[in-house]
Design a protein around this nucleic acid. Structure first.
Length: 700
DNA sequence: AGGAGTTGTCATCAC
DNA sequence: TGGTGATGACAACTC
């Protein structure tokens, strides 16, 4: 109970609690774990970890200076340092760079597979999972999950009816110039995309075409078509990955769209609805590395007998196709778009199947609920910012000053005083009993102040400077006037030894002036009696007692001499018991007085340090809020980019008759491995509903 | 005269 | 066990 009382009366913790109550979230337990026991422990019961000495250690640690040599806790000290570094690292958000490769697929007229190689020398490389589909042993890859997905497909009624048309039929022959061929579109898109040298053109382009229903290779279809979706459905939907995906998508918006490319893009044949409806945003500051590959889709003459009979019999439009758009870098897009029905995200169900619909200006949120949550967070954040007086402008202003002093800082580099002076005086005074060495600050202040009083000018100056630097409240100066000095210096200045520990403020300023610099007239008058009276007033009670008891040495020696020297001094004189008792009382009171001053000084320093820390935390909070708002803004832009990209890709897809696919009937869907599939909307809707249910189930 | 702030002192505890 | 530091509590003092 005593410990609790001590704790509750501790100004430091009261201050912290008050800060917490007013909204400044200070996790005392974690924040002070390295120095203080948990609040729980303090409140529920006494803790040996929270002693006066520990309080002293706290102050030392917070100051960032030396640790008390008597009760040092180096483990806690370094733990605090480590945690502090981690906290500081929080303001350095790192966005991983991710390369996004998208493949557009078209069919060869002959039904053979042909990949239109990008102009920038794409290396044929089997890197995607689809390569396995082409292998003769691709059946081996029909894992349980794939089978499971096959079942899913059946459940969903997913069918890929035979497609006899040739998407690219009109490109080489130029027979159908009214519609921009997919391949041409791909070239255009390719020109807009920074195909890097590392862009990989999958050697398994054939596998892409094999994804098209084929009797001869049923497993291939299942693999190429199902596995990406399957991985998507199986992949965990954890927030971390989701965020990484978002970051990857953010990079997409940085995809360069140069003017020439845009010109090519918009120089599409007349009548192309896309040419007037699609627009690519200018370059964005976000790093982009998106490769849009193209591949030819196998002939669509192959029927879909590879599907299970149930699938085959499903009544689906005969032109429906399943077009896996396989990226070479399947890791770029993962769970965020795992089996995500992009069509469901981009296109409202009520969209009809006209070509113009693909270029509809207003489309649903491509990132759907994910960004909705982000927006909600943003709203709440903004509310919070408003409530707490933060706004982005202020935050940016804060950042400017905060960049040079970022992070939670417990050290006292910019602290008042402070800490230099206070620490110096504190250490000197604390060690005064064992060492008579004088610190420069103490001595200077001492010389300035004289023997009377303990206020330190140098300290006050430092504090005032710090006040201006870190914005301490006016009360600070009041604190700074708290007298504090190392009385041990008295013993080092013999001409001041006679001065006791009197209160200077007890005297009127005029009296002080007269005391320090007596007017010549006064001296001339030679009123020694007045001076004697004045000195008497300057003397402390103990000095009066010592004089009355005729103690043969000064109180300063009594108080500040080390024990051995003190005992030697006593042994040199024949002192009565009353004298010895008084001397010991003087020594005890003198040391206690210094201890009290140190104690008060530590309290003050601790409070001031906490105040500074709170300010730092507030700056951190403001900066983090601002960063989050910026990220949300970037996400919004990215969302728009993805939406326009979807529209562009979808709008340029043509069926075997050269007609655009109806957004009401078909949709693009990302698979877990980054593949992009063109699937019937019914199936896409079901997939979307499944995706919606999964997080809910997981929450349960 | 009384409140607020400062300082000294005592009592107590811990080391 | 005595010395010493730390600190709550109180009183004295000044403004």
């Amino acid at each position: 109970m005593l410990s609790l009382k001590k704790y509750l009366t501790e100004g430091l913790l009261q201050f912290t609690i008050l800060l917490s109550l007013i909204g400044v979230r200070v996790d005392v337990d974690t924040y002070l774990t390295s120095q203080l026991p948990p609040l729980r422990e303090i409140i529920l019961g006494p803790s040996s970890a929270y002693t006066q000495t520990q309080f002293h250690n706290l102050r030392n640690t917070l100051d960032g200076y030396g640790i008390h040599p008597k009760s040092i806790d180096l483990d806690n000290y370094f733990t605090a340092r480590r945690l502090l570094s981690q906290v500081r690292a929080l303001d350095r958000f790192q966005v991983p760079t991710t390369e996004v490769n998208a493949w557009l697929v078209h069919r060869d007229p002959e039904g053979s597979v042909s990949g239109t190689q990008p102009s920038s020398g794409l290396a044929l490389e089997s890197s995607s999972g689809l390569q396995d589909v082409t292998g003769p042993d691709n059946g081996v890859r029909e894992s349980e999950t794939e089978q499971g997905f096959s079942e899913d497909l059946e459940d969903l009624g997913a069918v890929a009816p035979p497609v006899s048309g040739d998407l690219t039929k009109e490109v080489p022959g130029g027979e159908d110039q009214t519609a921009l061929s997919l391949e041409e579109c791909l070239r255009l898109l390719e020109a807009t995309c920074p195909f890097g040298e590392n862009a990989e053109f999958p050697a398994n382009v054939a596998s892409i075409t094999e994804a098209v229903p084929s009797e001869s290779e049923p497993p291939a279809l299942q693999n190429s078509l199902l596995s990406p979706l399957l991985t998507g459905t199986e992949s965990p939907f954890d927030l971390e990955q989701q965020w990484q995906d978002l970051m990857s998508i953010m990079e997409m918006q940085a995809m360069e769209v140069n003017t020439s490319a845009s010109e090519i893009l918009y120089n599409a044949p007349p009548g192309d609805p896309l040419s007037t409806n699609y627009s690519l945003a200018p370059n964005t500051p976000i790093n982009q590395n998106v490769s849009l590959h193209q591949a030819s889709l196998g002939g669509c003459s192959q029927d879909f007998s590879l599907f299970s009979p149930e699938v085959e019999n499903l009544p689906v439009a005969n032109s429906s196709t399943l077009l896996p758009l396989v990226p070479s870098n399947s890791t770029s897009l993962n769970s965020t778009f795992s089996s995500t029905n992009l069509a469901g995200l981009f296109f409202p169900p009520q969209l009809n199947g006209t070509a113009n619909d693909t270029a509809g200006p207003e489309l649903p949120d491509p990132l759907g609920g994910l960004l909705d949550e982000a927006m909600l967070d943003e709203i709440s954040l903004m509310d919070l910012a408003i409530e707490e007086g933060f706004n982005p402008v202020q935050a940016s202003q804060l950042e400017e000053e905060f960049d040079s002093d970022s992070g939670l800082s417990l050290d006292s580099s910019h602290s008042p005083s402070s800490l230099s002076s206070s620490e110096g005086s504190s250490s000197s005074s604390s060690s005064s009993s064992s060492s008579s060495s004088a610190s420069s600050s103490a001595s200077s202040s001492f010389s300035e102040e004289g023997a009377v009083g303990y206020s330190s000018d140098s300290e006050t100056l430092d504090l005032e400077e710090a006040e201006g630097a870190v914005g301490y409240q006016p009360e600070y100066s009041k604190f700074c006037r708290m007298s504090y000095q190392d009385p041990s210096q008295l013993s080092c200045l013999p001409y001041l030894e006679h001065v006791g520990h009197n209160h200077t403020y007890n005297m009127a300023p005029s009296a002080l002036d007269s005391a320090d610099l007596p007017p010549p007239s006064t001296l001339k008058k030679g009123s020694k009696e007045k001076q004697a009276d004045f000195l008497d007033k300057q003397m402390s009670r103990d000095e009066h007692r010592a004089r009355a008891m005729k103690i043969p040495f000064t109180n300063d020696k009594i108080i500040n001499l080390p024990v051995e020297e003190f005992n030697e001094l006593l042994s040199k004189y024949q002192l009565s018991e009353a004298q010895l008792s008084l001397i010991r009382d003087i020594r005890r009171r003198g040391k206690n007085k210094m201890a009290a001053q140190n104690c008060r000084k530590r309290k003050l320093d601790t409070i001031l340090n906490l105040e500074r820390d709170v300010e730092d935390l507030q700056r951190d909070k403001a900066r983090l809020l601002r960063e989050k708002v910026e990220f949300l803004r970037s996400l919004r832009q990215m969302k728009q980019k993805v939406q326009s990209l979807y529209q562009e890709v979808f709008g340029r897809l043509r069926d075997e008759n050269g007609r655009p696919y109806s957004p009401s009937q078909y949709a693009l869907q990302y698979a877990g491995d980054g593949s992009v599939l063109l699937i019937p909307r019914t199936m896409a809707d079901q997939q979307a509903r499944r995706q919606e249910r999964k997080p809910k189930d997981r929450r349960k």
